[in-house]
Design a binder for these strands. Structure first.
Lengths: 106, 106
DNA sequence: TTGACATACTATGTCTGTCGTGGTATTATG
DNA sequence: CATAATACCACGACAGACATAGTATGTCAA
């Protein structure tokens, strides 16, 4: 289990990755992050939902209401800006890896 | 130039890497980080000095006074706990890379 | 039928690391 | 003599992660 502090600044990227594969909602995004990381990372609920709010405020995702089995859901869809931002973060990540690797002894 | 927010949580590790190669002081550590990262990352002064304070408070480094050409310097030396912590962070970094990579499209 | 658990989300406040701003003081250099 | 480089520190602001707590519905076994 990795600490969240390392991840800081990449929660948004993880979420954008999920929604780039198809519209999703908070609870499902949470599960997918756990699955994709093979149980190595579980995003805290409050972290996730506040990230979703932030992403929408920044125009990287848009939301719409949905209902499934009588339960309300808020679905999120990635925007063009969101896709562009995601790509930027991916490129940035590659550079970040190279930099931090220089300070790591394996 | 990578943003500092990504690096958050790894400034301590970078500093420990420097001092693990030999005692050093703030100003020099700053320069070495810039050099090692090949100008991709410049740690802000306040970030660096507050990290040094934190690391010492946590027992990962110890300090001693030095003078060079009439200027005072505060040298830092890594402790056993610091070395152990550094190793932990290196292992953690390897895992973190693997996890985040799963959310990145190259 | 009831109680536990999963689903789905929100509100509020705290903590910590990063950073902006600004300051002190000495030495080197053109 | 001014400017840059060296060497460091205080203070406050800010944002993201998180703890805690709460609302509300659906499912399923005993």
């Amino acid at each position: 289990m990795i600490s969240s502090d390392i991840i800081r600044g990449y929660t948004d990227t993880m979420i954008l990755f999920i929604v780039s594969r198809g519209d999703s909602y908070g609870y499902e995004i949470s599960k997918q992050i756990k699955d994709i990381s093979e149980d190595s990372y579980v995003m805290k609920e409050t972290t996730l939902y506040s990230a979703l709010t932030r992403l929408e405020k920044n125009g990287f995702i848009t939301s719409y209401a949905g209902i499934h089995d009588g339960r309300k859901r808020t679905y999120y869809k990635i925007t063009e800006q969101g896709t562009a931002y995601y790509k930027e973060k991916c490129a940035e990540w590659e550079l970040t890896k190279k930099v931090i690797d220089k300070f790591i002894e394996t």
